[in-house]
């Protein structure tokens, strides 16, 4: 007899049950219950945001090289557990070939962003030649906490495509997993947990998008909201985002890999400092 697994959520580097005590079952193609999954609540969102804020300082201050190493470690762990992810996807009714392709692409994406970690800054920063005696440069800084609503289809790949560039750039994230296909997301949390990603950098909640997404959009301590098209929900989420001028990115293009997935979640900071020109007798002073 199979052990019926309860998939817990991932907050601050731990795997708690939802504080609400609610669950929903995930069935396979035949209707047999595969697992029970947490039906997270607004309070779980709140706890996840607190964890993400706490983790932000340390994560954003890690060296770019170090973040790249940790991302690469994620790719290694993901690759090492390929079989489990493929099985999980197939359990949820995905064909074998599709499942294999999705996991393969997932690993590719993580490796891709691992490589960007110490390069995007160089590509997108500038030294600005101002017309005064100042050194002036613009560099990118992570926005802070990113609320992420993972797409329903391609539940593993989609989550990775939205969350990994966010953390690659030093942000921390609160992710709402695919409501219909949540299993891989929690297994992915286990990958993160065993890959030197500090607790709180990525927090993953399962449950109803209609319940959790508004909680993210309205949270005053979340700096940006990232999603794929969400239908009717989109307008009310966008309205909530205005409350604290949360940046709101909706990615419509199914091709979700590129530098802009990192830079969209960065602020440009410009710094000025005087340049003292001192010489000997030839100096102007």
């Amino acid at each position: 007899m199979d052990i019926l697994k309860t998939y817990k959520i991932y907050i601050g580097g731990s795997f708690p049950r939802t504080e609400s005590g609610r669950y929903y079952p995930i069935a396979d193609a035949t209707g047999k219950t595969l697992a029970n999954v947490c039906l997270s609540s607004r309070k779980d969102v709140r706890n996840a945001v607190v964890a993400a804020r706490k983790a932000f300082g340390g994560w954003s201050e890690k060296t770019a090289f170090n973040r790249g190493q940790i991302l690469y470690r994620i790719a290694e762990m993901l690759d090492g557990r390929k079989g489990q992810f493929i099985d999980e996807l197939m359990d949820q009714g995905i064909s074998k070939s599709k499942a294999e392709k999705e996991v393969e692409q997932s690993v590719d994406r993580v490796v891709y962003y691992a490589g960007w970690a110490d390069k995007y800054q160089q590509v997108a920063s500038s030294v600005n030649p101002v017309s005064s005696s100042h050194f002036n440069f613009s560099a990118l800084e992570p926005m802070g906490i990113i609320g992420i609503i993972a797409p329903q289809e391609n539940s593993l790949l989609g989550l990775i495509e939205l969350a990994i560039p966010a953390i690659c750039g030093g942000n921390t994230a609160v992710v709402v997993a695919s409501e219909s296909y949540p299993l891989c997301s929690i297994t992915f949390a286990e990958v993160l947990h065993s890959s030197d990603v500090p607790g709180g950098v990525v927090n993953i909640l399962t449950g109803k998008v209609a319940e959790l997404a508004p909680a993210l959009a309205g949270h005053m301590d979340i700096n940006a909201l990232v999603s794929c098209p969400l239908g009717e929900l989109q307008t009310s989420l966008a309205l909530s985002c205005v409350e604290n001028l949360k940046r709101n990115f909706i990615y419509t293009d199914p091709n979700r890999q590129g530098l802009n997935f990192i830079t969209d979640l960065q602020e440009v900071k410009t710094t000025w400092h005087p340049i003292e020109s001192i010489g000997g007798a030839t100096s102007s002073y």
């Binding site: 005696s133 100042h134 005087p274 340049i275 003292e276 020109s277 001192i278 002073y285």
Partner: peptide, 8 residues
Amino acid sequence: VDKVGVEE
């Protein structure tokens, strides 16, 4: 003393 500030 910051020279650029003085110049300004």
